[in-house]
Amino acid sequence: MKTIILIIIAYLLGSIPSGLWIGKTFYKKDIRQFGSGNSGTTNTFRILGVKAGFAVFLADLLKGTLATSLAYLPSVDTNPLWFGLAAIVGHVFPVFAKFKGGKAVATSAGMLLGYNPLFFFCSLALFLILLFITSMVSLSSMIAAVIITLSTFILPSILPVLLPEQDWLLSCIAVIVTAFIFYLHRQNIQRIRQGTESRISFGLNKQEKKK
C-alpha cells in the first residue's frame, strides 16, 4: 500500500505543469497557445525567454529527481526507477493540465539524477555536445536518448564506474522513455526532415539573429 501511495505522489509531482504555471503567473501567457503548443522547457525558452526557460528546466528536472528519491525514504523497499517512471508519466500526461504536458526529456533526466548522479552528469555532457553540434534541442534530445539507452546495455561491461552492474529495469525503462520521446517529437522529426526545425542561437548550426 505504501508503494502505491508513493507512486501516486510521484505521478502528482510529475504532473506539476511548471511551464504553464510560470507562464501564467509571471508572464500572463498560456504557452500552450504559442509556438509548438507544448508546455515544456524548449517552448518556454522560445516563447518566454532564457530566464523562464531555465526555471522550467530546473523545475521539471527536480520533479523527476524528487520523485525518484521517494524510494530512499525509511522502510521503502521499491526500486527508485518505478517512482521516476511515474513522474515521467505525470509530466507527459499531467492531471493538473488536462493531461497535456511536456515531452519527457527534463523529467527523465531528473530521474537519472536521482538514481545515478554520475551517469546523469555524463549524459548531460553528451547532450550539451550534441546541442553544440546540431543547435537543435529536439534532435539532440532524441540522439542522446538513443545513446543513453544503448549505454545502459554496454557500460556495465566496459566502464563499470558509471554502471557497476547490468540493471535490466533501467534498460527497459530507458527503451520505453526513448520510444516516448520519439513519439512526442514526431512533429519535430517531420520539421527536421523538411529543414524547418527551430534552432537555438548556440552551436555550430546556430540560428542567426535577425538584423
Results as ranks from 00 to 15, higher is better:
I176W: 12
A10K: 08
V95Q: 14
G23C: 05
A144Q: 08
S39F: 03
F153S: 13
T65D: 02
F54V: 04
S135Y: 07
I16R: 02
I143D: 08
S151T: 02
F132N: 02
Y183E: 06
V137N: 14
F99C: 06
S138F: 09
D167S: 11
R186P: 02
F34L: 04
F127E: 03
P164C: 00
W82S: 03
D167C: 02
G37W: 07
F93L: 14
F96Q: 06
P17K: 06
Q190K: 15
N43C: 04
L170E: 02
P17I: 01
M136H: 14
R32L: 04
L48R: 08
I9C: 12
S140P: 15
I22S: 01
F127M: 12
T152K: 08
V137C: 11
N188G: 07
G114E: 10
F45E: 07
R191A: 07
A145K: 04
S135W: 04
L184Q: 07
A179W: 06
S138P: 10
W168H: 11
L204N: 03
I8P: 04
T25C: 07
V95D: 13
G84V: 12
P80K: 13
P17T: 00
L58E: 00
Y183I: 05
S75A: 13
I200C: 07
L139W: 10
T68Y: 11
I143T: 10
K2A: 03
M111K: 03
P80E: 05
A109Y: 13
K103E: 09
R193L: 15
I158K: 01
A55V: 11
E208I: 14
I189D: 00
L112Y: 04
R199D: 05
I22Y: 13
Y11M: 06
C122W: 10
T41I: 00
N79G: 02
L81R: 14
L48M: 06
